[in-house]
Computed example of a mutant assay.
Amino acid sequence: MSPIVPIVTLPFFPVLDQKLLELLRSLTPADWQRPTLAREWTVKDVAAHLLDGNLRTLSMLRDGFYGEAPPEDPHSYEGMVRYLNRLNADWVRAARRLSPTVLIELLAQSGAEYTAYLGMLDPWAPAAWAVGWAGETESLNWFHIARDYTEKWHHQQQIHVAVGGPGLLTRELFRPFLETCLRGLPHAYRQVAAPVGTVVQVRVETPIGGVWHLVKAADAWVLQPPGAASAAPAAEVTLSPEVAWQLFTKGLSPTQAREQAQLGGNRQLGEAALHLLAIMG
């Protein structure tokens, strides 16, 4: 099997922060209250959640201060989801007291500190938190950082969509998000039976997308770079960038995405890719 190289995302954090601040500073009072794809959260709520991500990481991981203890079993996916959902809801509710101006100021200050902290981490050292949605119980820091990138990317993209902003669907910014999300494909297929050597191809259209191959090995599914698989795909899944990012972050359900996806070959085998979820939830 060909090795999958790590995903480099750290250089793009300052770019995301700059684009976020530019967008938020351009909003009208009505824009801040617009609904988003993040369920019951408004634009202001999503911005507050992004701030929470900065402050929580600095407090917990940089400073070693948790405030509220994490689950007793940090490897329990369900326990971690409950823990994070409670923290998220409590913070967003309290942050509704903050003005947009205060949110912007805090995002500007904490974003730079947050990126500086990530830059201090050894990318090959074990991360404090595993990337649970990829099925890992221990992750390296480079994957933890990439996971954080997907969080910042998709929540900011939700704001762009809500207010008609320019969005983040560029090759520079979207491709790292996409590559990170697709590291969860083997976990999404963990219960899918197929003969050894079976290949599933996932294609995201346009120059900002790409092609990925998932290959069935003896005891697991393995993500391989294009051209490494020795057999023709048994199933092909093609998504637009707009459908892909929303599907992987719960903005679209698998049923909704199926109506917009192109499925070739073994449809049942291909449909498993529509259950890839690259967030904790």
Rank of each mutant, 00 (worst) to 15 (best):
M1H: 15
I4C: 15
P6K: 06
L10V: 10
L37E: 13
H49C: 06
H49N: 09
L58R: 04
D63C: 09
D73E: 12
D73H: 07
R82I: 06
N85V: 14
N88C: 02
L98N: 09
T101G: 15
I104L: 06
G111M: 08
L118G: 04
P126S: 10
A127V: 01
W129M: 14
V131T: 12
G135S: 05
S139K: 03
S139F: 04
I145T: 10
H154L: 04
Q157E: 15
Q157M: 08
G165P: 01
E172K: 08
L173W: 01
R175M: 10
P176F: 11
T180S: 09
C181A: 14
L182C: 11
G184T: 02
L185N: 04
L185W: 01
Q191W: 12
A194K: 03
A194T: 03
T198W: 11
V199S: 05
P207V: 01
G209C: 04
W212N: 01
V215Q: 05
W221A: 05
L223M: 07
A228Q: 06
A228T: 09
S230L: 15
A235S: 06
T238Q: 10
L239R: 05
L247S: 06
L247F: 05
G251C: 03
S253D: 06
Q256E: 15
A257H: 03
Q260V: 07
A261E: 00
A261L: 08
G264A: 12
G265N: 00
N266K: 10
H275K: 08
M280S: 14
M280D: 15
